[in-house]
């Protein structure tokens, strides 16, 4: 299979249809789950889907080193190439790496101001116009509304989609649909909220918020528990 076909047949298209054509540039989306469910893997899936369509991705790692994140991408990529029988693997990988920039805050504390500076810098000085910004392990617990607003502003300024991951804990206050919601205070600034939970043989993805869409009852998908790739509807049912 060639890269184009891999994209067209990507289960992420199903996911995009579920959220009305995707997150959309200038918007913020959050992936929420308990520890160890696969937030990062799902984030990398979304990023790879962008990368394989020649879109540029800035991946911000808050607790992991560049090397760790890179290994994560490599593993998911190899798996994806294997399942889809991707051809010209080396060339595709090269273009994926060219379109991706990992920025790590492993040894220093993360600051939104620094992040904004880095993103602007990449655009202005490194010819790296970001299409999607992935922020893994965003510290929602200590975040202020002003910080989230700065990120939203950045998304508008760079005209990119922003995905963040948030950690939930059992003892957290329950939000919409009875799920723990660590990002509730920032709802007004977030366009899409997804909750990942573990089910037998699959990871279930539930939409907690989908732009202005009020009817969220049916919006759920199952993900393959090892690759975290979305299973086709038929396959899932």
């Amino acid at each position: 299979m060639y890269r184009k076909e891999v994209n067209e047949r990507s289960p992420l298209r199903v996911f995009e249809r579920s959220i009305h054509g995707g997150l959309g540039r200038g918007n913020l989306g959050v992936i929420i789950s308990r520890a160890g469910i696969g937030k990062t893997a799902f984030l990398v899936d979304i990023a790879l889907d962008d990368l394989m369509r020649d879109r540029k991705v800035l991946h911000v790692a808050i607790n992991d080193s560049v090397e760790q994140v890179r290994r994560f991408y490599d593993e998911v990529f190899v798996e994806l190439a294997k399942i889809t029988g991707l051809e010209e693997v080396d060339e595709v990988r090269l273009s994926v790496e060219r379109n991706r920039h990992i920025h790590s805050y492993k040894d220093v504390s993360f600051s939104v101001d620094r992040l904004v500076a880095v993103a602007r810098f990449l655009k202005e000085h490194a010819e790296f116009a970001i299409d999607a910004l992935m922020i893994d392990n965003f510290p929602f617990a200590s975040a202020t509304e002003k910080e989230i607003a700065s990120i939203k502003e950045l998304a508008g300024e760079l005209d990119c989609e922003v995905w963040l991951t948030a950690l939930s804990r059992r003892d957290m206050e329950k939000g919409a649909g009875g799920y723990p919601d660590p990002v509730a205070p920032f709802d007004a600034l977030l366009s899409v909220k997804i909750y990942l939970e573990s089910r037998t043989g699959a990871i279930r993805l539930r939409l907690l918020k989908d732009h202005e869409n009020e009817n969220l009852a049916d919006l759920m998908l199952d993900l393959d528990p090892t690759t975290l790739l979305v299973k086709d509807r038929q396959e899932a049912s």
Partner: peptide
Amino acid sequence: FQGEMLRTVMQRRGIVIGTTDERDFVRVD
């Protein structure tokens, strides 16, 4: 000097894998 460092790599067909913030220093892989 982050900009200059990135530029020297990109001018040489390099792929920037990532950058790491280290207080006043930056590391480019």
